[in-house]
Nucleic acid binder design. Structure first.
Lengths: 411, 411
DNA sequence: CGGGTCCTTGTGAAAATCAACAAAGCGTCC
DNA sequence: GGACGCTTTGTTGATTTTCACAAGGACCCG
């Protein structure tokens, strides 16, 4: 046996041939995956598999449980960093036998992985070396594959943007186009936008894509990136009370996963309403954007809002602003109070706002302001006088409250 | 002197000639007015006038004080009803000497009046008869005049509608056109709409026109009628706090006057905001209409609102409805409560609304509902449970309150 | 018909609010 | 410097609110 001859020093027609060639050289069952753990090829020998390998082949994808464990135990980290094959000892709880794995790389980018099941005891240095060569041989195949995927992705991308901008209009046309592109549209969907700290780099984009592909919590049908935002079309569960909550949980879990694995996490996230008519994608997108915009202005007030309807009356603010822009009328009470504050450098306005936002509760408000209760009641009396307000009148209070919020929204 | 010869059995070139002819026949100073008490002609003899006549001639209009007194004392009523001349004894407080007056008629319509000052003692029957003949002689002149006025009015009318619909756009063009039409535009204006019970008849229209012409409280620059609405372009006073109130008072006084004199009064009235840019007439008009629309839905809540800004947050309702139409999301708490109400035929919703609208005051609300305080607190606890609401949270309360109002607005 | 749930009303005690007043601090303006 | 107005804090007592618990009525269902 010529040890120096390299059986992988040639091009392979397809990855299945390569897998079989590896098997021929090393006598170990082989699986080849892309960067997102989708099965690309495997050596075709029915015997000698561990349960993990079987489910991978049956599902055409590495089971999520296996992936999580590999991440949890740091295997993925090592695999991503190492240029050379690494050895992973058996993990019975996920049905994984002793293995050897190597990343298929192109410069820094990881294009996929080759996994080897060590059925005949540990592979020698020679074997590891050959595996490395096999990974090199797989590269060109994966590059081609990637280019093809990119191309497909491009058309998904265009499709998604047409939806987001409302350019693909009646529901039926959307569904037709989806069928053409082989996109399986869920019964109900909603758009979710994740806002990141800064513009999303190419590397970040890949990590995001990895997460979207492998997350078991939500099915992300389509995704797109704009500047620092990641836009998702996510499948929504059928209507039911607790499912609503579950959906939110699922998103949070995905985000947490992203953070754990790559140390990245969006600053904020928001979802539009759930629709089943695919002409409404734009609406759901706009709702998500509105939500984010309002959350930016009112972080504390809307901290628990993750979907558009959670905003309560805050979602009316853009429309209220529209009225204000059209009719340009300033609340005279607020005007007077602001003038008073300016001339006497007091802060009646802030006092009023805190009082209103805390349900007109004197004690709570006084505590928050670190002032005596009587001081607060005195101030409230002054506020009523100066602003010409009756603070026991709900209509007046709501008017003031909304006008205050509207001001905060515009500034 | 031939008593049977009728000196008025001829046509007169103009009313001044007629006035002088009457003077020639009866030796009394004469004034001829149109239906709105504008001076049309007077006999030209400098001596023998009472103060009322002098001010009428100087102002080319009967002083408002004189008109009011004539109405108050029932003189106008008699004059409008009587086919024959009537005698009015002197009223010193308004500088009116003994007089005789007759209405100039065309069938039922009163076109104007002839006034005679009885400087030489009471006029005999003969004189009264001649005066009646004189009134007949004036008729054709007044008809011509009326036709001319109608024509002018028609162009005012068109002008006003152009303004109201925003078809005459930049401020300067409006002002140019006004100059052409000889309309004196005030510095600041606003549009007021009076809503009547039923469609405005021709007769009512005349009475309205009479009121607008003679009212001393507000200057009505332009007016128009649509179905059951009277639309006014009213001069607004220069900005100042109390003037704001005065303006409202002025309108009310005019309305009261209308009611007193003709027994008619609008069901409701509303004004748009005050502008100085004449491109904004449409806006002010829309504001007035919105005000009326909201007042119809919320009569008690907005009873004190007579101008658009008085609406407070109610003026946001149309915009909030717009949001709701766009995004179709029902407040889940209200939904649940409504469902509960239906299934247990209770009225938690009404309870909630009353509670919220009365500033979350338990005592007041309980009294209004004629229930025990504890009953109310129990219900509120149930409402909180069933609706999943925190009734000590202002944001949630405002959301509920606005959604309730929005529902009330749409029904 | 009895048992269960839901609603209403009553009682009582702790907590909060309201109103009126006194005392004192802090600017400003003359 | 002192009068003055505005503000803050403290005190007090009447009133209201809140909460927990109990008892009884209405209604439904097995």
């Amino acid at each position: 046996m010529n040890q120096n001859a390299n059986p992988f020093d040639q091009t392979f027609d397809n990855l299945d041939t390569l897998a079989d060639a590896i098997y021929g050289a090393l006598r170990c069952p082989v699986t080849i995956e892309d960067a997102n753990h989708r099965l690309l090829a495997y050596s075709s020998h029915e015997d000698m598999s561990d349960p993990a390998r079987i489910s991978t082949i049956m599902g055409r994808k590495v089971p999520e449980k296996v992936i999580s464990t590999l991440w949890r135990d740091g295997v993925m980290k090592r695999l991503l960093q190492s240029e050379l094959p690494i050895r992973i000892s058996a993990m019975e709880e996920i049905g994984l036998g002793d293995r050897v794995a190597v990343a298929i790389r192109r410069n820094q980018d990881v294009l996929g992985y080759i996994w080897l099941l060590e059925v005949n005891g540990p592979l020698g240095d020679q074997g590891l070396h050959q595996l490395k060569r096999a990974a090199d041989a797989a590269r060109s195949q994966l590059i081609q594959l990637q280019m093809k995927t990119r191309k497909e992705e491009k058309s998904y991308h265009d499709f998604f943007w047409q939806l987001l901008t409302g350019h693909l209009q009646p529901d039926e046309r959307v569904r037709d186009r989806a069928k053409q592109l082989d996109v399986r549209l869920p019964e109900r969907y909603h758009v979710t936008v994740l806002q990141f700290e800064e513009a999303i780099s190419e590397k970040l984009k890949q990590q995001i894509r990895y997460t979207l592909e492998t997350t078991p919590f939500v099915r992300i049908v389509l995704h797109a990136v704009t500047d620092a935002q990641l836009v998702l079309l996510a499948a929504a569960p059928s209507p039911s009370v607790d499912d609503e909550e579950e959906q939110k949980e699922a998103l949070f879990r995905m985000i947490r996963q992203m953070k754990q694995r790559f140390g990245i996490s969006p600053v904020e996230s928001g979802s539009g309403m759930i629709y089943s008519d695919y002409a409404m994608v734009e609406r759901s997108y706009q709702e998500a954007l509105t939500l984010l915009q309002i959350k930016r202005r009112f972080p504390e007030e809307t901290s628990s809002a993750s979907a558009y309807p959670d905003l309560g009356y805050y979602r009316y603010l853009p429309h209220i602003l529209q009225e204000k822009q059209l009719h340009r009328f300033e609340n005279p009470a607020l005007q007077k109070l602001r003038k008073y504050d300016r001339e006497h450098n007091s802060d009646l306005l802030q006092t009023l706002e805190l009082f209103l936002s805390h349900d007109s509760n004197v004690k709570v408000t006084a505590d928050l302001l670190h002032i005596h209760i009587n001081t607060l009641t005195y101030r409230l009396k002054r506020i009523a006088e100066i602003g010409g307000i009756d603070l026991n009148n709900m209509d007046q209070k709501v008017t003031l409250y909304l006008d205050l919020k509207a001001e905060k929204m515009t500034e």
